[in-house]
Simulated assay, not measured.
Amino acid sequence: MADRLTQLQDALDNQLTMMYAALNYIQTRQPYSDIPGQPNLAPDPAPIPTPDSVLAPQSAVSQLTNGDASQQQPNGPSQPSQQAVVEEPAADGRPRTPPPERPEVFNRAMREMAQGLVLQEQQIEYLINSLPGLGNSEESQVRRMRELEAELREVEAERARAEAEKERMVDMLGEVIGKVKRIP
């Protein structure tokens, strides 16, 4: 598990990514608004596909070919295929923007994005509040660092004693092994 500062940096990066995605979605997919007294020239949003409309052409094709997709009529299939529509770039070479969302779909997506941003912000606040040192004065932090340094020196001295003991035991074991006679 990463330390708290790394977790905080990751959470901030995630929030910035979420904000950028939300702004991009709002800019490209917001529905057109009506201006009172002006004609509505907005293109019609794409209809929301229903499960029946998606499955109907596929089942019609399978009925025409008896379920064998490899058989085709000489002039191509009689029903439109279910392949993804690839939008061609506009006349100036830039990619076309996607059509605007329906207002109810757009509002639902905005609500979900806002909830995600709020949850991410709460996670960031939790990580900030759990950072060590918050709520402690500089003097108490310096005192704690000195205590930890003294404890580290004690542990290091104990480790050095254990290392010397290990070396002494290895030497003693070498002497014992050297005194053992071989049996011919």
Score class of each variant (00 low, 15 high):
Pro80Lys: 03
Ala157Ser: 09
Leu148Tyr: 12
Pro99Thr: 05
Arg111Gly: 03
Arg153Lys: 10
Leu131Ser: 08
Arg144Lys: 10
Ser81Lys: 02
Gln79Cys: 06
Glu139Gly: 03
Tyr126Ile: 04
Glu158Pro: 01
Arg146Lys: 06
Glu154Cys: 00
Gln71Val: 12
Gly133Met: 12
Gln122Leu: 06
Ala60Lys: 14
Ala109Thr: 11
Pro57Leu: 01
Arg144Tyr: 11
Ser59Tyr: 11
Arg108Ser: 09
Gln141Phe: 11
Glu156Val: 02
Gln115Met: 09
Ser137Asn: 02
Glu112Tyr: 09
Glu87Tyr: 11
Leu131Cys: 08
Glu88Ala: 15
Leu152Met: 12
Pro99Tyr: 14
Glu138Leu: 14
Arg96Ile: 03
Pro99Ala: 12
Val105Gln: 10
Ala109Asn: 13
Gly135Phe: 02
Asn107Gln: 14
Val86Leu: 15
Thr97Pro: 04
Glu154Val: 03
Pro57His: 05
Val155Ala: 13
Ala69Ile: 10
Glu138Cys: 06
Thr97Arg: 15
Ser137Val: 03
Leu148Pro: 00
Arg94Met: 12
Val85His: 14
Asn107Tyr: 14
Thr65Glu: 02
Val54His: 07
Glu101Phe: 15
Ala90Ser: 13
Ser130Leu: 07
Val155Met: 12
Val86Gly: 07
Ala157Asp: 15
Glu158Thr: 00
Leu131Lys: 07
Leu119Tyr: 14
Leu152Asp: 06
Gly116Leu: 02
Arg146Cys: 00
Gln122Asn: 10
Pro89Asp: 14
Pro103Tyr: 15
Ala56Phe: 11
Gln141Val: 10
Asn66Ala: 11
Glu101Ile: 00
Gln141Met: 14
Ala84Gln: 13
Val155Gly: 05
Ala114Asp: 10
Glu156Cys: 00
Gln71Gly: 03
Gln71Thr: 10
Ser59Lys: 07
Gly67Ile: 01
Ser81Asn: 10
Gly76Gln: 01
Ser70Trp: 01
Asn66Trp: 15
Glu88Gly: 13
Leu134Ser: 01
Gln122Asp: 05
Val54Trp: 00
Val142Cys: 02
Val155Arg: 12
Leu127Ala: 11
Ser62Thr: 07
Arg143Cys: 01
Ser62Leu: 10
Gly76Val: 06
Arg161Thr: 12
Asp92Cys: 08
Arg111Val: 04
Leu119Val: 07
Ser140Pro: 02
Pro77Ile: 04
Asp92Met: 05
Glu87Leu: 14
Gly76Thr: 08
Leu131Ala: 11
Pro100Met: 03
Glu158Asn: 06
Ser130Ile: 02
Ser70Gln: 05
Leu127Thr: 12
Met113Lys: 13
Arg94Tyr: 07
Phe106Lys: 00
Gly67Asn: 09
Leu64Pro: 02
Leu55Ile: 09
Glu104Pro: 05
Glu112Gly: 08
Leu55Ser: 00
Asp92Tyr: 02
Gln83Tyr: 15
Gln115His: 09
Ala91Tyr: 06
Ala162Thr: 06
Glu87Asn: 12
Leu55Asn: 11
Gln122Ser: 05
Asn129Gln: 12
Glu163Asp: 11
Leu127Ser: 09
Asn75His: 06
Ala84Lys: 14
Ala157Ile: 08
Gln82Gly: 01
Ala109Gln: 03
Glu163Gln: 11
Gln141Ser: 08
Glu138Tyr: 15
Leu119Glu: 07
Pro77Arg: 13
Glu88Asn: 15
Pro57Asn: 08
Arg146Glu: 00
Gln73Ser: 09
Glu104Met: 12
Glu112Lys: 15
Val86Lys: 15
Gly133Lys: 13
Glu151Ile: 04
Gln115Pro: 01
Ala84Arg: 14
